[in-house]
Nucleic acid binder design. Structure first.
Length: 107
DNA sequence: GATTTGACTACTA
DNA sequence: GTAGTAGCCAAAT
C-alpha cells in the first residue's frame, strides 16, 4: 500500500496542497503525527523526485525556500511559486501567513 | 548493527 | 530582533 511508508504519507499530504498555497514542514510532520520529524518531511520530499509531489509548495516555518537549492534550477522553485500567484522575495514567501495552508484544513 | 546525515523547529543567550 | 545550540526522528551508508 502507499500508506505504509512515512514518505508516501508525506507525498499524499503535499499533493493535497491547493493551488497558490504553501505549507511548512512542521505542519505536515505534525499532521502525520511526527510533530518533531519535520526533517523527515524534507527527506521524504527529497525522494519525491519520482513522484508528482509539488515540493515547491513546501517551505520552512519561516516561509523561506530553504529547499530551493535542491531543485533542478536555482530559481525553479521561486518561478513555480510565482506561477501560482505566490509572491516570493529573496527566497522568502511574501504574506506567508496568507498563503499558508494547513493540512488540518483538509480535515 | 552503529554512525552520519538531513529541504526543521524550538529554546536560550 | 538576531545568533547559536540542542533536540528530534527516520532513512542512507
Amino acid at each position: 500500500m502507499d500508506n505504509d511508508n512515512f514518505f508516501e504519507r508525506v507525498y499524499k499530504v503535499t499533493r493535497l496542497i491547493p493551488y497558490g498555497r504553501v505549507t511548512s514542514y512542521g505542519a505536515i510532520a505534525r499532521f502525520l503525527g511526527a510533530a518533531r520529524s519535520a526533517r523527515m518531511v524534507g527527506w521524504a520530499l527529497n525522494n519525491s523526485h519520482d513522484k508528482d509531489v509539488p515540493a515547491h509548495r513546501v517551505v520552512n516555518r519561516n516561509g523561506v525556500l530553504t529547499g530551493k537549492h535542491h531543485f533542478a534550477g536555482t530559481n525553479l522553485m521561486k518561478d513555480l511559486l510565482e506561477s501560482e500567484g505566490i509572491v516570493v522575495v529573496e527566497n522568502q514567501v511574501k504574506d506567508f501567513n496568507e498563503v499558508f495552508w494547513d493540512p488540518k484544513d483538509n480535515l
